[in-house]
Simulated assay, not measured.
Amino acid sequence: MSTNTREISATPTAVWKVLADGWLYPLWVVGASRMREVDDTWPAVGAKLHHSVGSWPLLVDDETEVLECRPEELLQVQAKAWPGGEAGVTIHLEPLGTDRTKVTIEEDASSGPGRLVPKPLRDLPLTWRNTETLRRLAFIAERRH
């Protein structure tokens, strides 16, 4: 499991508002390129984001489904990006004082060809990707409140 952490200068409420707006997903998730649909119940358990990954003209339409949701605390999803496979992603929010949040992303391939790659080789690109993902999430959350 690859783990990345960043302190964001925004409250857990402000960070959660970004996570809870499914239409913002491609703004902060590296690799997501566009949204096609967001279930009305997002981010409730079972809700899905219907997104595309990749770069035009090589776009793959897929989805991400919520497995667990504790508002302002935790969001766990199963992200699909076939033919590459699927990944389990957990985002933890931890308040730091009155106006900061420690955000941790844990991610690993859960099925498909990505799971066949040795763990050290899976972790390196996930670490790079999620460092940028957290940077983007911070940019949005810190400027929205």
Rank of each mutant, 00 (worst) to 15 (best):
T98D: 12
A138H: 04
W56P: 09
A138M: 04
G22M: 08
A138R: 07
V45E: 09
P120K: 11
L67V: 06
V53E: 05
A14M: 01
G46F: 07
R136L: 12
R70N: 11
G97D: 01
P83I: 00
V117L: 14
L24R: 15
P43Q: 07
V60P: 00
P113I: 05
V103E: 01
P57S: 05
V38S: 09
D21L: 06
P113R: 04
L49F: 04
H51D: 05
T41C: 04
E73N: 11
K119T: 13
H51C: 07
E94T: 13
P120M: 07
E142P: 11
M1Q: 10
V38A: 08
V30N: 11
T133I: 06
K102I: 00
T41M: 04
E107I: 07
N4H: 06
G46M: 08
A20L: 04
A79W: 12
L116P: 02
D39Y: 07
E72A: 10
D21R: 13
R34C: 05
V89N: 05
R115W: 04
G112E: 06
A109K: 00
L74Q: 13
D39C: 08
Q78K: 15
L137F: 09
T133G: 09
V15K: 13
A32N: 08
W16H: 06
S9F: 01
T5V: 14
Q76T: 13
K119R: 15
Y25W: 10
P113T: 01
N130K: 10
A79F: 12
E7D: 13
T101M: 09
R136G: 03
L67Y: 04
P95A: 04
V77S: 11
T104Y: 03
H50K: 11
L27W: 01
P57A: 08
G54W: 02
M1G: 12
K48R: 15
L58M: 11
T101A: 07
E94H: 09
L126C: 10
L121R: 11
D62T: 14
A141N: 07
G88N: 12
N4K: 15
T41G: 13
V117N: 08
L58C: 03
L49V: 10
A14W: 02
L58G: 05
S110V: 13
V103W: 05
L134V: 03
E7W: 02
E132W: 11
S9D: 06
L96N: 10
V103Q: 03
R34D: 06
I91S: 02
E68P: 10
M1T: 12
D39V: 12
P118E: 03
R115V: 05
W23L: 02
T104S: 09
K80F: 07
G84Y: 09
